[in-house]
Amino acid sequence: MPATTPLPPVVDAFLDAANAHDTDAWLRTFTPDGAVDDWGRVLSGHDAVRAWSDAEFIGARVTLDVTEVAAGPGDADVTVLAQVGGDGFNGPSHFTFTVQEGLISLVRITA
C-alpha cells in the first residue's frame, strides 16, 4: 500500500477487521459513541453503526484496498483512499478517521 503517512494502529485494525468481515473486532475500533458519516448520513453509537454495517458494509462483504494515506490539517485526522469492493458500493472512496484516545470517534466516507 503506498502511504505518505503512517496509519494509527486503530485504523489498521479497522481496515483488517473490515477485510476479514469481523464485525465484532471492527466495532471494537470505535469509541462507545463513535459514528460513521456515510456520504452525509450519520450513524452514531455501536447499535446504529452495527446495523448500518450489517446492511451495507461488512454484511455486504466489503473489501478495502488502500491506495493512498494522508494526514489531515494539523494531523487531526487521517484520510485513506481505498478502492471499495464487495456486494454493495464498488469504487474509490475516501475514509477520514478521527482518532481519540486510541479509538475511532468518527469515520467520514466520501467520494
Score class of each variant (00 low, 15 high):
Asp22Trp: 06
Pro8Glu: 03
Leu81Ala: 13
Gly85Thr: 06
Asp87His: 07
Val36Gln: 04
Phe14Leu: 08
Glu68Asp: 15
Thr29Leu: 11
Gly40His: 09
Phe57Tyr: 09
Pro8Leu: 07
Ala51Tyr: 03
Thr31Gly: 03
Val10Asp: 06
Met1Val: 15
Gly85Leu: 05
Ala3Arg: 14
Asp75Ile: 00
Leu103Gln: 14
Ala20Asp: 15
Arg61Tyr: 12
Thr63Ser: 11
His94Gln: 14
Asp54Cys: 10
Val78Ala: 03
His21Met: 09
Ser53Ile: 00
Ile58Met: 05
Thr31Arg: 05
Ala35Cys: 12
Leu81Gly: 04
Asp16Pro: 00
Val49Asp: 01
Pro6Tyr: 09
Gly74Leu: 00
Ala76Tyr: 08
Ala17Cys: 10
Asp12Lys: 15
Arg108Asn: 13
Val84Thr: 13
Ala82Leu: 05
Ala60Cys: 04
Thr4Asp: 13
Leu106His: 05
Glu56Trp: 08
Thr98Lys: 11
Val99Ser: 01
Asp38Glu: 13
Arg41Met: 14
Val78Cys: 10
Gly88Leu: 00
Asp37Arg: 02
Trp39Pro: 13
Ala20Glu: 15
Gln83Gly: 07
Thr79Lys: 13
Phe89Asp: 02
Val66Ser: 08
Trp26Gln: 03
Leu7His: 08
Asp33Ile: 07
Val62Gln: 08
Asn19Val: 10
Val69Asp: 02
Thr29Met: 05
Ala55Lys: 07
Arg61Gln: 14
Gly91Thr: 00
Asp22Thr: 10
Val66Lys: 12
Asp38Asn: 15
Ala13Val: 02
Leu103His: 15
His46Pro: 08
Gly40Asn: 08
Leu103Cys: 11
Gly91Arg: 04
Arg28Lys: 15
Leu106Phe: 04
Leu103Asp: 09
Thr98Tyr: 05
Arg41Asn: 15
Ala70Ile: 09
Ala13Asp: 14
Val66Thr: 11
Arg61Thr: 09
Phe14Ile: 07
Val69Thr: 14
Met1Gln: 14
Glu101Phe: 11
Thr98Ala: 13
Ala51His: 10
Pro92Gln: 11
Val11Tyr: 03
Phe30Val: 05
Thr23Trp: 14
Gly91Glu: 04
Arg41Lys: 15
Pro73Ala: 13
